[in-house]
Structures are given as C-alpha cells and as structure tokens.
Design a protein around this nucleic acid. Structure first.
Lengths: 138, 138, 138, 138
DNA sequence: GTGGTCTAGACCACC
DNA sequence: GTGGTCTAGACCACG
C-alpha cells in the first residue's frame, strides 16, 4: 500500500489518508479482511506524527470502514467495500453535475461542453497510455 | 446584485462572495466601472459580519477586480472582465479534468463517462427549462 | 452548564464529556439551538487540555448532536434531542436487563430481586430528599 | 467448564475470564478444591493467546481464588467460595443502584421504573422457560 | 474571539 | 508488538 500526502493540499492530512484508504477499498486495491499498515508503519513511511494517522484510522473505524482486531491491528471491514464504492460513485456523479451546472451558468452551450469533455478525455487517455508504455519499458 | 451564501458549504463565506463577484463580472452581470454594494449594504443584505464582506472586497482589490474610487466606493476594474472570464473558463476546464481523472482511476470507462455526462446534461437542461417556464408564468 | 469529570473512571475523559452533553440534552438541561461552552471555557473550567474537549465536541458533531456556527461556536442540533432521549432510555433499559439477567443466573429469585429493587429505590429517594432539603436551606 | 468470550465486549479478555471463573465459583458450578483447565487447554479451547489466559489465572491467584498445587495445577481455593458470592452479590446490588440512580436523574419516576423492572423480569422468565423447554426436547 | 490541524512525547492496556 | 488517551503548545482560517 502506498499513499501520497500533499500537506499543502487544502485538505487535512488525516482526511487525505481517509480518502485514499476508502478509494483503495472501492477500487479493490484493499480487500475486505486485509490488514492496513500499523500506526507506526504508516506514520514512519509518510513522515507524519502517529497521532495524525491515528485520527484518520479512528474516524475510519467510526465510519465502519476499518475494524480493530486486538493485538493484531486494523483491517478492512467486510461491509465497507460496497459502501466505499457507492460513496465514490456518488461523489463523482455529484462533481460532474456541479461542473456542468457551473459551466451552463457561464453560458457554455452543449456543443462546447461536449468538445471540452472529449478533449480532456483524450488528453487523459494519452497520458495514461504514456504512463503505461513507460511502465512496460521498466 | 443578489448573492446567495451557504454557510455550510465548506467554502469560506468570504470566498463565496469573491467567486460570485468574479462570476458576475465574467458573465456580464456586473459591467466594468459599475459600483459594487457598499460594505454596510451587502453585510446587512446577507446578514453577515461586515468583516467578512470587507475581507472579500479587500482580496478582490488585491486581485485587481475591484478598484477604490475616493468618495464613491468600489467599482469593477476595466481590466477585470477579460481576466475573470479566463479564470472562470480555466476553472471549469480544470474541474472537468479533475472529475474525469478521478473517474478514470475508479475504473470508469469512456462509455460510462459519456453516459453520465449526457444524463447530467439532460437533467440540467430539463430543470432549467422548468425554471424558465415557471418564470414565464409569473 | 456544569460537568463533573472523574479521570479515574475507566471511561475516557472525552467520553465522559460526550455522555454528559447527551445526557443534558436528553433531560432538557440543554435545549436545541443553545450554545455549548467554548473549547477554551470548558477546558479551563475542567482543567483539561483543550484538545481533549475538542475531541469530545468533534465526535458529538460527527454524531449530529452538535452543529457548528462559524465564528460563533457549537450549538445543540435540533434533531439531536429525540435521538439523545431514545439513546438514554435504551441504555437504561439495557442495563436494567443486564443486571436482572446476571442476578437470575446467580440464583436470585423474583422476590429477592423485588426487595433489592425497593430498597435501593427507597435509599435513592431518601438521599435525593436530603439533597433537596439541603438546597432549600441554602 | 465452558466460558464464552466476546472480544468486542469493551471488557478486556483476561477480565472476562476472571469474572466467569469467579461467577462459576459463586454459583457452585466450580466447587472448592476442583481443578481448573490448564493454560494450554483453556487457551486452545477459547482460541486465545496463552498469555491472556495466564494473566487471568495469575490475577486470580493473587486474589486468592485459585491456588497452585505442585504437579497438579490450579484449583479453586476453599476460602474463595464465600468471597466470590459476596463479591457477586455486592456487584449486582451496586449495579442495580447505579441503574436506578441514572434512571432517576433522567426523570423516570417510580412507577415507570417498576414497570420497566417487571417487563424485563417477565421477558427474562419467558426466555429462560423457552430455553428450558428446548433443552427438555433434546 | 471561535474551532481546526498538526507535532511531540508521555503513559497505559492488551496481546 | 498493537492501538488508546492525554498533555502541551504551536500555527492557521474564519468572523
């Protein structure tokens, strides 16, 4: 498991950790029942204070994403997977709606929006293709 | 000028004011040279602490969107219009890109994304049509 | 609002604060919309670190008992009252059941239990009467 | 001897073991002089870390409930029975008092409390009757 | 003034 | 070894 933290992100660090855990669960990178890095491990790896990681984990427990196994550590709750996926999908749709709403208010018409959508999608595919070929070369 | 403020928006109130001013400039609702409501007027109208409005206006001055005219008040800078439009367009494109990026990372494929895009756009057109017809009836 | 904290209670201090807030809400001592003491006030009054109080308040927010009003403070959510009452009642009934269950397993019969119940209730009424008369004298 | 352990009980596992041993002594399920399962047996049976069982036994020895008999194992101390019973009774009375106190503070009046008491007792008798008839059928 | 976040480091209970 | 709790004190954003 690798997390990337950006302290200047606007989002609180504990929140970034929470999101990345949920995202990993939703995408299957973290399976139900799988252990999550210990407080000590993760705080060392990310060069953070253990309390910061502890807060993220504590709130993930409160949300039912993580479960504690005494003397062992924290692991992904089996009930969490579906919820994380739904949460992620709802989030994306919500953001899509918000972008389109704002664009419409700014007098963008459908054709312009479709063009912007296509351009960005193409750009994205391009860059992911490049990343993939880069990986292959390694 | 009518602004709508949502205190539970996550965004700071002063930021919401700034965005709405810039948005109004970009869309032509506020023209260059036009006066902006005074601190007292706006804070009273929005039931906000004058400090909050003051901060928004102060930062808009710093960005060159507003200009102080002695004995008159604050008005829209003539240089501001183009910049606000560019800013708005860049912002929307940026957000579109960010949504698509995140969606791709969540294993959405192009077809699904196009479908979601179309659905949300249709929904939006529908609701704006309804709003329009409602307005016509008044 | 007066809270009493016992550091050697077994329960975490932040938990004691949470319970007492919920209890005060359930019993009507704290009304919906009413402000709760600020972090600084309460931590000073209880001689606690502000972080400890902050955690209690943060989790009460997460549970929907408190709501933040920016620049003002935290206040009792209107939706919280009923939930706090139900929570309190369920808790008491649950504990009553647990005591009776354990007593039954220890071969107490109904008559003995009823006697113990009456004795303790009488004792309780006695002591509350004394407290009341003491208060009256002040 | 059958113990039931609930890892998510709030109570520490070693504490649950201690309570159940004392409870069995108080109720006569474990007689004075009777041997208690060995560390290995009990830890295997309950799927627990032997250290956990060891700690429970160690503290029960310190309290004088268990006695080490060389070459034999741990057995129930003869002095333990009365003390366990008293402890149990005091515990139950204490918990009854605590429930009633809290209920009173929550504005329950005597009639309500008596009703809750009767209901829960009836429920309990009901369920124990059902369990008994179930056992008879086997 | 309000709360929010983070760091640093302590002690504890449990396995 | 695991996480849980608390303290002390810093800095920031917001109103």
């Amino acid at each position: 498991m690798f997390f990337t933290i950006d302290p200047d992100n606007g989002l609180a660090i504990y929140d970034q950790i929470m999101r990345q855990v949920k995202f990993a669960v939703a995408s299957g990178a973290l399976q139900a029942g799988q252990r999550v890095p210990s407080l000590q491990e993760l705080s060392a790896q990310l060069a953070l204070n253990p309390n910061t990681v502890a807060r993220a984990y504590r709130e993930l427990q409160a949300e039912g994403v993580l479960e504690m196994v005494r003397g062992v550590g924290l692991e992904i709750s089996s009930k969490a997977v579906k919820r994380c996926q739904q949460e992620r999908d709802a989030l994306i749709r919500e953001r899509m709606r918000s972008v389109l709403t704002e664009a419409r208010q700014s007098q963008f018409d459908d054709a312009e929006l479709q063009r912007m959508f296509d351009e960005e999608l193409a750009l994205l595919s391009e860059s992911s293709r490049m990343a993939a070929s880069k990986t292959r070369k390694r």
